[in-house]
């Protein structure tokens, strides 16, 4: 707080700016949290970063550049296909099973607290757990391979889609629902004819967006045994950095492509 006196004798008080409280809080948290992070300059070997990048993006030993790049079509197509397949299947199944939960979580459709509160709890529970941990658990149940990837991505998609979808449902125009009810329609019929047409475009748009996220996530799910490119990365991380590098390059191209395709389709949907 500071006080100003004008030349004509009037005084005015400038109130304390709350921004300083926020700055102080952030600074305090940074200080407290920094005590959990080891910081010893003698252990930092930045030159090693250059070494590993070189190892990743140049052919190893007596391999040629031709070997480096031919590895992609020769050995990475099948894992890539697995990655895409599990993202696709998981996105579709997860989104479909998210629909009933989203409906049950929407306050404007289900008016009883006893239904929408537990529904939302379930939804948040799935959203909490990172996809990789879901994959880890899935591997326990069905073994390593693409099936556990599909299960992990399904559950992960289920969590995000149900949240996004219920938020859309809660913003729809309820007038058509009223009209449908006035004709004697059942709840399911009102959902089909008054709610679905309003949310379908957003649903499809989210579906594509989540597919994009899933391709990115599924790249690494293989790291815990869920198949796809991640498995290749894990298998080669100790001795064949150039194979890892080639996999990363392939994934960059694929993800960029999926992202462009996804924004193109979504812009068409608007």
């Amino acid at each position: 707080m500071s006080k100003f006196t004008l030349t004509n004798g009037k005084t005015i008080v400038k109130p304390f700016n709350k921004i300083w409280i926020i700055v102080a809080c952030v600074a305090l948290l940074l200080y407290l949290f920094s005590r959990f992070i080891p910081f010893d300059p003698t252990f930092i070997k930045l030159d090693q970063l250059k070494v590993i990048l070189e190892k990743m993006f140049t052919p190893k030993g007596n391999r040629t550049w031709n070997d480096y790049f031919m590895y992609i079509p020769k050995s990475l197509m099948r894992p890539l296909q697995e990655t895409i397949n599990m993202s696709f299947a998981g996105t579709i199944i997860g989104s479909l099973i998210a629909v009933p939960l989203a409906v049950l979580s929407a306050k404007n459709i289900v008016k009883t607290k006893f239904i929408y509160i537990p529904a939302r709890f379930l939804m948040n529970l799935f959203r909490t757990i990172p996809a990789m941990i879901l994959a880890l658990i899935a591997v326990f149940f069905v073994g390593t391979g693409i099936l556990s990837g599909i299960i992990a991505i399904t559950l992960f998609t289920f969590g995000i889609m149900s949240k996004m979808l219920y938020e859309v449902i809660e913003t729809i125009d309820m007038n058509p629902v009223e009209a449908l009810e006035s004709t004697g329609a059942t709840k399911v019929e009102s959902l089909r004819y008054a709610v679905m047409p309003q949310v379908l475009p957003m649903f499809v748009s989210y579906l594509i967006y989540i597919f994009e996220i899933n391709v990115r996530a599924s790249t690494i799910l293989g790291y815990v045994g869920a198949g796809g490119i991640g498995t290749v990365i894990k298998d080669n991380i100790l001795y064949n950095y150039d194979r890892v590098g080639a996999s990363v390059l392939l994934m960059l191209v694929v993800i960029l492509f999926v992202q462009m395709l996804s924004s193109f389709i979504r812009s068409k949907l608007q």
Partner: peptide, 10 residues
């Protein structure tokens, strides 16, 4: 179907 067919299920 194709996605699942490609998967080797244990």
């Amino acid at each position: 179907v194709y996605s699942f067919a490609g998967s080797t299920i244990n």
